[in-house]
Design a binder for these strands. Sequence first.
DNA 1: CTAGAAGTTGAAGTAAGCTTTAAGTCAAGT
DNA 2: ACTTGACTTAAAGCTTACTTCAACTTCTAG
Lengths: 153, 153
Amino acid sequence: MPDDSLSVGEVASRSGFAPSAVRYYEREGLISAARSEGGQRRFERGVLRRLAFISAARHIGLSLDEVRAALDQLPRGRTPTAADWNRISKLWRARLDAEIEALEALRDGLESCIGCGCLSLKRCRISNPHDVAAGAGPGAVYLPRRLRQPPAS
Amino acid sequence: MPDDSLSVGEVASRSGFAPSAVRYYEREGLISAARSEGGQRRFERGVLRRLAFISAARHIGLSLDEVRAALDQLPRGRTPTAADWNRISKLWRARLDAEIEALEALRDGLESCIGCGCLSLKRCRISNPHDVAAGAGPGAVYLPRRLRQPPAS
DNA sequence: CTAGAAGTTGAAGTAAGCTTTAAGTCAAGT
DNA sequence: ACTTGACTTAAAGCTTACTTCAACTTCTAG
């Protein structure tokens, strides 16, 4: 009698996350689940929307801690509406803008580096981005590893 | 009698890397060092340029494996010229462009998501970027964790 | 010569975000 | 009832890029 609750496997295949990830998110308190008599997880359908949000946030680059904080902004008690979700995800736009700006600054700095042939420890804005950060940039321009594009060089 | 060779501490403070990082890079084969009679590292000055390159590449987001591959493109035997360094770092521009494009696609997708109030697992381009990737994007739009900006939400 | 700063090593620790493994339990179809 | 697939747990493992530790040695200034 599969009522309206979902097993971890169903949630996994519908959300696109691996079952182990779904369990991990539950352990981490990002989602919650009831239990069957036998102790197996029973998820409400709402968890799928929550997972969609998590997926989106991860794609945008939020850490799980940040995702947790964002989810905590949701209304306690009532089921979140589309407006609730949107209010939260709107904040991401500024973040993306900042990231794009940082990358563009880096690219432009690279152009000038290539032009001047430096790569000097003291002068190069790329190898030495403290100067950039100290200048007019939006915080430190230090980008972490990105998706494995086929190594360009 | 400090000839023209540098100790690990000197290299560290001049390059901006921690001494432990410099040793790590040597272990990983990104840089090399001669040894004193007593077994201490003696770096040539050229290592500073190499470290500047490594620093720049890391700032742009290359993994150490990619940096190693890039360094392997340098001429064997002779000391690399500014042109050598520039030839290699020019390739980074395409990478940065691709990353910027991916972020912009993500931002625009987010706009439409906010507009339509979806965040649906099936329809949302953000929570489900496979569709984007399958469409016209430059590879998977799946961005890793970024520099800790103060959590926007 | 000697103190003390700086260097050496291998091994273990850190962080995030999961995955894998092992050993065992539950659920469902026949 | 039985078989099979899905599920359970805690604990360990993975990856990257380093840092930290402990115990010891070397270098250099005075």
